[in-house]
Lab assay of single mutants.
Amino acid sequence: TTVVVGNKKYTFDNPEAAEKFAKKVAKKLGATVHKTNGTFKVK
């Protein structure tokens, strides 16, 4: 599962961990999490 934050990509074996990370980053940046085909995008 990939999490994309700006131009950085983070890969997780565990989708739950990926989602948690994405939400944490989004909260910090005041952004939102978008899920597309198993990829979480923070923007």
Results as ranks from 00 to 15, higher is better:
K27M: 10
T39L: 09
K24E: 13
K27A: 13
T1S: 11
K8C: 08
N7F: 10
A22P: 00
K41L: 15
N37S: 05
A31N: 03
G6D: 05
V42D: 03
T11E: 10
N37D: 14
K8G: 05
N14Q: 08
N14W: 07
K20Q: 12
P15Q: 10
K9Q: 11
G30Q: 06
K23Q: 12
H34A: 07
V42M: 03
K20T: 11
E16K: 13
T39E: 15
K28Q: 10
F21N: 00
N37F: 04
G38I: 03
T2Q: 10
T32R: 07
T11F: 14
K8Y: 11
T1K: 05
V4H: 10
P15S: 09
T2R: 08
K8A: 10
G30S: 05
Y10L: 04
K23I: 14
V3F: 01
A22I: 02
A18R: 00
V33T: 03
V4M: 12
A18W: 02
F40D: 03
T2K: 09
V3L: 02
K24V: 09
K41P: 04
H34D: 09
A31G: 15
P15D: 10
V25F: 04
T1F: 13
K43T: 15
V3N: 00
E19W: 14
G6A: 06
F12T: 00
V42L: 06
K28V: 08
F40R: 02
K43L: 15
N7Y: 11
A26I: 02
K28C: 05
E19S: 06
N37L: 06
A17Y: 11
T1E: 04
V42A: 01
K23N: 15
H34N: 06
A22R: 01
E16I: 14
K28G: 05
K8P: 00
N7S: 12
K23W: 15
T32S: 08
F12I: 02
K41R: 12
K27W: 07
F40E: 03
V42R: 01
V25P: 00
V3C: 02
F21I: 02
N14T: 11
T1Q: 06
K24T: 10
A17N: 08
G30F: 04
G30N: 09
V25C: 04
V33R: 01
A31R: 04
A18Q: 00
F12H: 02
K28N: 07
L29F: 07
K27D: 11
F12M: 03
N7L: 10
G6Q: 05
A26W: 01
V4A: 07
L29Q: 04
D13V: 11
K24Q: 12
G6K: 06
Y10F: 12
K28W: 06
A22L: 02
V3T: 03
V33H: 03
G6M: 09
T1P: 08
V33F: 05
V3I: 03
L29Y: 09
K24G: 09
T2S: 10
V33L: 06
E16G: 10
E19N: 05
K41V: 15
K41H: 15
G30W: 03
T11Y: 14
V5S: 02
Y10Q: 01
G30D: 05
T2H: 13
T2M: 13
A22Y: 02
V4Y: 14
F21V: 03
K8W: 10
G6S: 05
D13I: 10
N14Y: 07
T36F: 13
N7Q: 10
A17P: 04
K43W: 14
K28A: 12
K23T: 13
D13G: 11
V4R: 07
N14V: 08
F21Y: 07
T2D: 11
K9D: 06
K28D: 08
K41Y: 15
T36M: 12
N7H: 11
F40Y: 11
Y10E: 00
T36I: 15
K8L: 09
E16H: 13
A22S: 04
E19Q: 06
A22W: 02
D13K: 12
A17M: 12
K20S: 11
E16Q: 12
K28L: 10
N7D: 08
N14H: 08
A17S: 11
V25D: 00
V33I: 09
V3W: 01
K20D: 11
E16R: 12
A17D: 10
V4L: 14
F12C: 05
V5D: 01
T32A: 08
P15N: 08
V33A: 03
F40P: 03
H34G: 05
T11S: 11
P15R: 08
G6V: 05
V4C: 08
K27V: 09
K23C: 07
V42I: 12
